[in-house]
């Protein structure tokens, strides 16, 4: 508990230091306006994220109360002694179970641990609970989990039911194609091809739009099933979240990301709308995580190999 107390003090101190940055910066971090500058600096190999529409993606964060450990929800978690986080175990390099160690690993997992450290003073005081894609919102609303850190895209539809932290990653939709396939653009990669996407995903909606000229569209339960089908020669191209597309490419050296990022979006941490104290604390952690190099270190460890050495296109 002593250890915990000292962490609390650190958090408080930091909270004071960055108070000003918070008031102004949090809003800025949440909007898409910060992004365009990085496009020019992105290396050719790295995917280029075009500027998002300034409105309509609902990724803007309403400024929350200043972070403290005295809020109702934070107190509840501290009394419980563990932070319950809803994660995925199948997103390679994001949240996945390493069969060798039996441990959950990845970018999202490291971020979750950083939050546990801030709330409870110990990155180990955390309970990971797997939630399915369709159950994410339900799990937050009925309190099964405190937070969902699971490559979750911030959008208006979801914002009606739950709250989001500030964005922590910029993503979109990317195509996964065999290395030999011609796919300079998403349109070229899909023309006349057998496409694959996960059900109830933005990719499915996109592929159903007319104009891509796909010869067929296969809808599967999980985006990773598309990679199985692609390896078995049953589909030619997969459209999925750029984060997950990179995860696919990381698992199979014979496929690559193709075309440009379409439908840019931002990822955030999902939580209950009334847990404003927790939201404030999480946003504080996100700021610290960026500032102290934690974000970059996690990017380098998990994502650089498959998404490019420069993290610039993905900064929130």
């Amino acid at each position: 508990m002593v250890k915990g107390e000292s962490t609390v003090r650190t958090v408080r101190t930091r909270a004071l230091v960055v108070a000003a940055a918070l008031a102004a910066g949090l809003v800025g971090a949440g909007t898409s306006h910060g992004v365009p500058g990085v496009v020019a600096t992105a290396p050719a190999a790295a995917p280029q994220v075009p500027a998002a529409e300034p409105t309509g993606d609902c990724s803007e964060q309403t400024p929350a109360a200043s972070p403290s450990l005295n809020g109702r929800k934070v107190q509840e978690i501290r009394a419980r002694g563990t932070l319950v986080v809803g994660v995925d175990q199948n997103s390679y390099n994001w949240g996945f179970r390493n069969p060798q160690s039996g441990q959950l690993e990845g970018f999202d997992i490291e971020l979750s641990r950083a939050i546990a450290k801030a709330v409870l003073g110990d990155p180990g005081k955390i309970t990971f609970r797997t939630v399915t894609t369709p159950k994410r919102i339900e799990a937050i609303r009925n309190g099964t989990v405190d937070l969902v850190v699971r490559t979750m895209t911030i959008n208006c539809e979801r914002r009606k039911d739950i709250a989001f932290s500030a964005p922590y990653f910029s993503s979109g939709q990317r195509l996964v194609v065999p290395k030999s396939a011609k796919a300079a653009t998403a349109a070229e990669g899909l023309q006349g091809k057998r496409a694959c996407a996960a059900q109830q995903s933005s990719s499915e909606t996109e592929l159903k739009k007319p104009g891509y000229g796909t010869s067929s569209v296969t809808i599967v339960e999980n985006q990773l099933d598309c990679l199985v089908l692609m390896q078995l020669g049953k589909v030619d191209a997969t459209l999925t979240d750029s984060t997950l597309a990179a995860a696919q490419a990381a698992q199979d050296p014979t496929v690559r990301l193709g075309g440009e990022t379409i439908i840019p979006a931002k990822m955030g941490i999902g939580l209950k709308q009334e847990d404003t104290d927790l939201a404030a604390l999480v946003n504080q952690v996100l700021l610290d995580y960026r500032a102290n190099g934690g974000w970059q270190a996690a990017y380098d460890r998990w994502l650089a190999a498959s998404m490019g050495t420069s993290s610039a296109p993905y900064l929130p």
């Binding site: 199948n90 069969p99 199985v228």
Partner: peptide
């Protein structure tokens, strides 16, 4: 066997093969 081989490399793809 594909499931096993992928899983042994620590890839979630193994699970997808097993389910398939």
């Amino acid at each position: 066997e594909s499931a096993r081989a992928n899983d042994r490399q620590g890839l979630p793809l193994g699970g997808a093969y097993q389910r398939y």
